[in-house]
Amino acid sequence: MEAISPWALPLLALGCLMAGLEYGGMGHEVQVEHIKAYVTRCPVDAGKAVIVIQDIFGWQLPNTRYMADLISGNGYTTIVPDFFVGQEPWSPTGDWSTFPEWLKTRNARKINKEFDAVLRYLKQQCHAQKIGVVGFCWGGIAVHHVMMTYPELRAGVSVYGIVKDSEDIYSLKNPTLFIFAENDAVIPLEQVSLLTQKLKEHCKVEYQIKTFSGQTHGFVHRKREDCLPADKPYIDEARRNLIEWLNKYI
């Protein structure tokens, strides 16, 4: 039997979650300089915004837009930019043997040009004064990166994402929450332990690392929780933690 990429394993559980998933979204698509983005404006504008960074399935994934709308409903303008800049996202039906090569063309740590454009848009067009960031999977890696790069970000939430290709994984500029899954085939617990150790030794800002028992990669931004009812309490808790972190620091 051909070996399955660890990135593919979450999809085996996501089959029923994605099948027939229809979510149109509460926001609208806009052009932000050289990239497209999905924006949801909060009815009560408090000058707060959250950048939501996509996973490997791209900025149009209904699950990610669902999470952006959920965050927006808690008092934030949210934006989901196309950080692949028009390149095709990964397809659930793709040939996983080609995934490593595909991933090389989409480096989650080389998004500064796009991130700068999004920051300008939020400040100039949405009048955002306080900005945070949330990302899932590939986007979680990007969050880890930008939270070590942009001091102006008030808070970050990295959801099953972690910078692996650097010794410097601890110099966070502002409060960051990391959410992991115990049974994540993409991020072994050894890497979570290393991050925990490095942050404990070196980090000078607030941070928190939470690992949810029994959960797998992708659990937080599933929309159809009823596919796996036993997981719903963990999904609800993780989402609550995410919102509470943003509310505390933005």
Rank of each mutant, 00 (worst) to 15 (best):
P188H: 12
A3D: 14
F180P: 07
P10V: 09
K36V: 12
V163C: 15
E244C: 11
I250E: 08
E201C: 01
V157N: 02
Y23S: 12
W7N: 14
S72W: 02
L9D: 10
S158H: 10
W59G: 03
V146L: 04
P6M: 03
T78V: 02
N63I: 07
F99T: 03
K198W: 03
C203Q: 09
Q215D: 12
A37V: 08
A3Y: 08
F178P: 08
T78R: 00
F57S: 04
G132N: 06
T149G: 08
E22N: 13
W102M: 02
K48T: 12
W90T: 00
P10H: 10
L17V: 15
V205Q: 09
E201W: 03
I79Q: 06
L61Q: 02
A155T: 12
K173L: 02
L9S: 15
G20C: 05
V50G: 02
Q87V: 00
T196K: 01
A13R: 14
Y23E: 06
D231C: 11
G15E: 14
V157K: 00
I179L: 14
V52M: 09
P81W: 12
W90D: 07
W59S: 05
Q191D: 15
E101C: 07
K104V: 06
I235G: 06
L194N: 08
W96V: 06
G24E: 15
F219Y: 02
G86L: 03
I53M: 07
V80T: 05
G139M: 02
T98W: 06
E244W: 02
S5A: 11
G15I: 13
K248D: 08
L61D: 12
N174K: 14
K123D: 08
T176V: 06
N63T: 15
S72P: 03
Q60P: 04
H221C: 14
L103R: 08
T64E: 13
R239C: 05
Y170I: 06
L21K: 04
G132C: 09
Y160Q: 06
P100T: 08
E201P: 01
L246E: 04
W245R: 05
Q129A: 11
E237T: 13
L228P: 06
I53C: 01
W7Y: 15
L246S: 11
Q191W: 10
Y170K: 01
M26N: 15
V143N: 02
I169H: 04
H28P: 05
I79L: 11
Y38P: 00
L242H: 01
G94K: 11
C42Q: 10
I209H: 01
H127W: 08
H145R: 04
T77F: 03
W7L: 13
V52E: 09
P188R: 00
V186Y: 10
